[in-house]
């Protein structure tokens, strides 16, 4: 047990075979949650005390001693051309937890989320300063290949966006572009099962994904994202286009899969954040009256319970109680 955990951390830190390591992490995930605190200390020689950092930042309302930091974000600034969209964001995301990003529209939640798999690289003129460490490794190091990053850090978008291909080909897409040719049937079945969609589509895998309902399409997108066996899932308002029943299914699904993955979710739905997340980061926008622009800032990041019952910042309290935004 201890050995495996140690391997996982070191490999991930070295960035050599993170894919395999993520698999390993998944395999031990359930056990790790119940492991005694002692395993954590020798497990992280390559990572500079991530647990302490995480706990210190989180305010430690409910200390979970064996938390492992996945994303360590420090002084993150994102610019679109001259426009600064977010300023000085600092917080941590921990393994096998669901971290919710909430805040009023335009405060930069999507922008921050897209930094974690370097999706902003695709936007002309987008620029990132500050550091994001992924298992202790600088994500924006010039030697890091953004494509490799995205294979480990999957993304589910606000609007279901299946490819205009069959259900099967949608799920098999990620493994295929990664070069996998064999065993795709198993991957497709496994991913669809995890995404709670298998029973509904198993008889029509060859049909177009566009024949599915919106909720099914979104679960297909989740299946597609977990088919590459990622380490982290980034979800940008995954339920905003869905009805309450489909939303509930996806929330259940998130609880189910968080044992294997780390999830960061953006949501506008307070109840959803309160229901599903372990940690909540509240963002807001500061308005510069001189040129009428807004810059997103992180107000606080804490245990979800604390954010919703006893936040340390007044702005958070106003927002979560519905008095603002």
């Amino acid at each position: 047990m201890t050995d495996i955990t140690a391997d996982t951390t070191v490999d991930a830190g070295a960035g050599a075979t993170v894919g395999a390591a993520a698999g390993g992490a998944a395999a031990v995930g359930i056990g790790a949650a119940a492991a005694p605190p002692a395993t954590a200390a020798p497990a992280s020689p390559a990572v500079p005390a991530p647990d302490a950092a995480a706990l210190g930042l989180a305010g430690a309302a409910e200390p979970a001693p064996d938390r492992h930091t996945v994303f360590c974000t420090r002084d993150l600034n994102v610019y679109y051309g001259q426009f600064r969209a977010v300023r000085d964001v600092t917080f941590d995301v921990c393994q096998h937890e669901i971290t919710a990003l909430i805040g009023p529209s335009g405060c930069g939640k999507t922008t921050v989320l897209r930094c974690y798999n370097r999706m902003n690289d695709l936007i002309d003129g987008a620029r990132v300063t500050g550091t994001i460490e992924y298992h202790g490794l600088d994500l924006y190091d010039e030697r890091v290949d953004a494509v490799e990053v995205r294979r480990r850090i999957g993304m589910v978008f606000q609007k279901p966006n299946p490819f205009p291909k069959s259900i099967y080909d949608n799920v098999a897409y990620g493994p295929r572009v990664a070069g996998q040719r064999k065993g795709l049937d198993e991957v497709v079945e496994g991913s669809l099962t995890k995404a709670a969609l298998w029973d509904e589509v198993k008889d029509r895998l060859g049909d177009s994904a566009f024949g599915l309902s919106g909720g099914q399409q979104q679960r297909l997108c989740i299946a597609r994202a977990i088919a590459v066996d990622p380490d982290v899932l980034l979800m940008d308002e995954p339920c905003s286009a869905l009805d309450p029943i489909a939303t509930a299914r996806i929330e259940d699904l998130m609880q189910e899969i968080k044992r294997e993955y780390t999830i960061v979710i953006v949501t506008h739905n307070m109840q959803q954040a309160a229901r599903v997340s372990d940690m909540t980061a509240f963002f807001t926008a500061e308005i510069h009256s001189e040129n009428d622009t807004r810059t997103g800032i992180l107000v606080e990041c804490d245990h979800t319970k604390t954010i919703f019952s006893n936040p340390s910042d007044e702005r958070t309290e106003n927002y979560v109680t519905g008095r603002f935004g």
Binding site: L122, R150, G154, M155, F157, Y173, C221, R224, A225
Partner: peptide, 16 residues
């Protein structure tokens, strides 16, 4: 554009 983003998000290179 969202199809390109979906593809990139799954670890596809530009050519793929």
């Amino acid at each position: 554009e969202h199809l390109r983003e979906a593809s990139a998000g799954l670890g596809a290179r530009r050519m793929a």
